[in-house]
Design a protein around this nucleic acid. Structure first.
Lengths: 125, 125
DNA sequence: GCATCATTCAACCTCTGGGTTGAATATCAA
DNA sequence: TTGATATTCAACCCAGAGGTTGAATGATGC
């Protein structure tokens, strides 16, 4: 379903987060910088696989890579997650606004019914 | 990178959200129930494609389907998004806790340096 | 009954995601 | 230099995502 050929930031961020290995990596990184090998250590995965996961996180700008000699130091950069949080908040605001509107409608109906006795059948006139 | 063969709820939710078409559908649904054809209308996509997107959202429990005659009425169910929000909050709490710890460390160091003049070379004792 | 409308099912295509292994590159340490 | 270490590159595999088209299913309206 190639939607547009231009995946936006939200797409990339959410996609990057949609994998338990990558979420675990982020969790580890939120405790501080780590090297690729360190990050790979807890997983039953080849180093290469983890390297790829890191690339996905980088693409989403969720991590930043700092080279120091032969070691690559990865660190967590939270901005994209803030963006996701903002989108979700907006979405939820939308949703609760709609619920509120429904509620208002029902209340108004109740008031109308209370002021005029229910015409069970036939018109009032 | 088949991590486990058991994609958990977060995986499915985030994956479902990682597509602009599906996010648009959710946005539309947060304004109220809609039929499949209505949902498909804004997109330059086959009805079938949209039907598939809806299935993905269903799999993630982000929408609920109610059949009424030949029409399928879709509605937004926000719980999975709440779960994502909770995960992200936890993640951010983690992160800011770490920053706070770093800050504390620096402050303590500063205090230490202020009380004892800096021994530029050689041990104190 | 029959045409129509709403939706899915089935088959297929292509692209990408996640994984592997093996070789290449670059740095460090001796 | 030489060998070990840290990491990526390249090629490949397979499953699944996203899309298409065409047929099947199931209500509805006459």
């Amino acid at each position: 379903m190639r939607t547009p050929a231009t995946p936006n930031h939200l797409d990339q961020t959410l996609l990057a987060l949609a994998d338990p290995t990558r979420r675990a990596i982020l969790q580890r990184l939120s405790a501080g910088e780590a090297r690729v090998t360190e990050l790979a250590q807890p997983f039953a995965l080849s180093l290469n696989a983890v390297s790829k996961h890191i690339r996905v996180l980088e693409r989403a700008h969720l991590v930043h890579r700092r080279r120091e000699g032969r070691e690559h130091l990865l660190s967590f950069t939270p901005k994209p997650m803030d963006d996701v949080a903002r989108w979700m908040d907006a979405q939820r605001a939308n949703w609760s606004a709609r619920l509120q509107a429904l509620d208002d409608l029902l209340q108004e109906e109740d008031r109308a019914l209370a002021s005029a006795p229910p015409p069970k059948k036939g018109r009032t006139r």
